[in-house]
Write a protein that binds this DNA or RNA. Structure first.
Lengths: 335, 335
DNA sequence: GACTGATGATATTTTCAAATATTAAATTTT
DNA sequence: AAAATTTAATATTTGAAAATATCATCAGTC
C-alpha cells in the first residue's frame, strides 16, 4: 500500500499539485470551494504530508535529539520521560542516544544527530567530556542546544540545573547540625561542574561552621556505585573512620553504604550518610537514606520547553538563560 | 556554516554531481584517479551525505521506532538501553515514544513514526491495548515490527518474551515448597498476555500441588505500585490474610509490601511475597524481595538484533519466530 | 580505411514529495 | 477596453542516487 501524495490528490481533482499544497496549507489565494474539495479528498485518501520531503526543503525536522550518559539510569530515564511528554504535546519526537560516559561516543552521537538535521539538542554531558568543540559546532550552525544537569560551563547556551553548591551546603549543614564533625566527601571528576559545585558547597558548609577541611577525608573517584564502594574501602584501609559522609550522588552513596554495612558499622550511629538525586532506591533501603531531591521529570520538561521555544524562535538564541531548580533535602534515617 | 553537498565537490573539481556520487559510492565505472580526488576533497570539506535526501529517494531511514508504556520504568529504560546499544553499533538511531499506558497515544505514536518512515518498530504494548489494527497497518506496509515483553498475540510478527507461565509456576511452586498453602495472586488486566500467562502459571502450580484455587484470594488490578497497595488493602479489609502473595510484577509487589508493613505484619514470617521483573529496588528493600529476573537489557538487545536482521532482509518477513528468554527465580529473604 | 560493436568515463535528466516563486489565465472592476 | 484582482498552472528548489544519454577510444571485421 503506497502512501498518498499531493500528486494523487491533484490528479483525481484534475488540478495541479501546487494548488493542492496551497489549499492544504490554507493559502488565501485558493478558492474556498477548491479548498473544501481538496481537504475532503485528502481526508478520504488518508493523506499525510511526507515529513521527509518537507524536511529536505526546509532543512529541518520535528525531531529533538537527546544525548544522555545512560538511558537506564534513574535520573536520566525519568528526565527523558519528561522531555518526551513535552515534545509529544508540541508535535515533536525524540531521538535518544546514550554516550555510555564516553566522550568519543558523545561526539559521534552529536554529529550523527546533527546530520540527521534534528531541530535541536538536549544534552547531559558524559563524565569524560571536557572539550566542547562538538557543541560549539552546533551553536555555529545555529542549532538550538539546551544542557540539563551536567552542563559544560564554557558553552554559552541555556542550562537547566539545580543549585548544586547551595543544596550541597544545605545537606552538609544538616550533618553538622546533627552533631557530626568529621565529615568525609566523596567527589567525582573534578572537571565536571556538578562535582566542582557540590564540593564547593561541602567546603562552604564546613567553613561557615568553623570546621577544618581535611584533605584526607576527601576521596576522588567516578560517579558509579563501585566508586563509592572503593572510596569507602580506601577510607577504611587508611583507618580513617568519619562520623558522616556526603557523597556526590546516590550511586556513590549506595556504594559507600554497602561497604559500611560490610564493615559491620551502623548507619547512622557509627557513620551518617547523605546522597544526592533521590533515586528511588534510597527510600527503600534500610535505613532509608537522606538525599537531595532533584526534580528529574520536571527538569526534563523544562529543558524541552526552553528548547522548543528556541526552535520556534520565541526565545532569541543569545538569551542564554540558566534555569535553576530548587533541590530539596529529604531527611531520612541515615542521618 | 552551510553543509557541503555533492554539488560543491562537483563544482570545485569541475565534474558532474553524479560522478561525485558514483565515486563516493565506489562504482566501478569511475576512474581511480577521479575517485581519489573526489574522496580527498570530500574529506577535506567534511562532506556527509544528507540522510534526508537519501531517505526521500529510498523511502526509508536509519531510524528505529521504539514505543514503550513508560520510559522511566526500570524494565523499559534498561531494555531501551539495550536497544540503543545494538542500534548504535549498526548505524541506527532510535526514536523513543511512550504510550503512558494509553491505547490512543500508542496509535498516535505508531502513526507518527510510520509517517516519519522509520525503518522498523520495537514495541511493548500499553496496558489498555487490545485492538491491533495499527500494527496490522505496519505489517501491510511491510514495515518490520518486533514485540518485546508485552506482545499482542494475534499479530503475527517476531516476539521477544520470557516464558511467563513457566516462570510463574516456578515462583509459586517455590512458595509451596516453603510450606505456604494460602497463596494469593495479584494480577493485571486480563486482556494482557503476560498477565494471563502469569495467572495460568499460578494456577498450574497450585493444581500440581493439589491445592485449591480460591477465587477470593485473587485480586484484579493494574500494573502499578498503587494497584498492589490497593489489592493488599482490599484483602485486609476482607479479613483475608494469606500466608503468601505472588504478584504479577514488582511494582505491584512493592505496593503490597508497603501495605503489609503498614499493617504491622512481618515479611516473610506472616506473609511471604514474590514479585516479577527483578527491578533494582527489590534487592535493596528490607527484607530483599524474591522475584523473577527478566533479562531486560538482553531482551532489548535481542529485539534490536532481530529487527535489524529484518530491516536488512536477512530474515524473511514471514519467519515469525518467538524468542523465549530464560527467566530465573531469584530467591531472597521475602520468602 | 571505413564501419560496427564494445567499453570506459563522464554528463544529463529524472526521481523522490512538498513548498514556493513565477507566470499565466480567467474574472471582475473601473 | 484597459486595469485590477482572483485563481491556478508551471517551473524551480531541496540533495542524493539512479536511469539514461553522450562521447570518446579501441578492437575487430569486411
Amino acid at each position: 500500500m503506497r502512501n498518498t501524495t499531493i500528486m494523487d490528490i491533484a490528479k483525481k481533482l484534475k488540478i495541479s499539485a501546487s494548488t493542492v499544497s496551497r489549499a492544504l496549507n490554507n493559502y488565501p489565494d485558493i478558492n474556498e470551494e477548491t479548498k473544501k474539495q481538496v481537504k475532503q479528498l485528502a481526508k478520504k485518501l488518508n493523506y499525510w504530508p511526507n515529513p521527509i520531503a518537507r524536511s529536505l526543503k526546509s532543512n529541518k525536522t520535528n525531531v529533538i535529539g537527546v544525548i544522555v550518559p545512560e538511558i537506564k539510569h534513574d535520573f536520566f530515564s525519568s528526565a527523558i520521560s519528561g522531555i518526551e511528554e513535552v515534545a509529544y504535546h508540541s508535535g515533536f519526537t525524540i531521538l535518544v542516544c546514550q554516550s555510555n560516559e564516553s566522550y568519543e561516543r558523545e561526539v559521534i552521537n552529536t554529529n550523527a544527530l546533527m546530520h540527521q538535521r534534528v531541530a535541536g539538542f538536549i544534552v547531559s554531558i558524559s563524565q569524560t567530556t571536557t572539550n566542547g568543540d562538538h557543541f560549539k559546532a552546533l551553536i555555529d550552525r545555529k542549532i538550538p542546544l539546551v544542557f540539563f544537569d551536567r552542563a559544560l560551563n564554557k558553552i554559552s547556551t541555556p542550562k537547566v540545573v539545580i543549585d548544586d553548591a547551595k543544596s550541597s551546603c544545605v545537606a552538609v549543614t544538616h550533618l553538622i547540625e546533627r552533631g557530626h564533625k568529621k565529615i568525609a566527601h566523596f567527589t567525582g571528576p573534578s572537571a565536571m561542574n556538578i562535582c566542582k559545585l557540590r564540593f564547593k558547597g561541602y567546603k562552604n558548609a564546613l567553613k561557615s561552621a568553623n570546621l577544618p577541611i581535611s584533605e584526607e577525608l576527601i576521596r576522588y573517584g567516578g560517579l558509579q556505585e563501585s566508586d563509592g564502594y572503593a572510596s569507602m574501602d580506601s577510607l577504611l584501609k587508611d583507618n580513617l573512620i568519619p562520623d558522616a559522609i556526603f557523597a556526590v550522588n546516590d550511586p556513590v552513596a549506595i556504594g559507600a553504604f554497602q561497604r559500611i554495612k560490610e564493615a559491620g558499622l551502623k548507619i547512622p550511629e557509627d557513620i551518617a550518610i547523605v546522597g544526592f538525586s533521590n533515586n528511588k532506591i534510597t527510600s527503600l533501603i534500610e535505613p532509608p537514606m537522606t538525599t537531595v531531591n532533584q526534580p528529574s521529570f520536571e527538569m526534563g520538561k523544562k529543558a524541552a520547553e526552553i528548547l522548543i521555544d528556541m526552535i520556534e524562535k520565541k526565545i532569541k538564541n543569545n538569551q542564554k538563560k540558566t534555569v535553576v531548580f530548587e533541590a530539596e533535602l529529604i531527611v531520612r534515617k541515615s542521618t
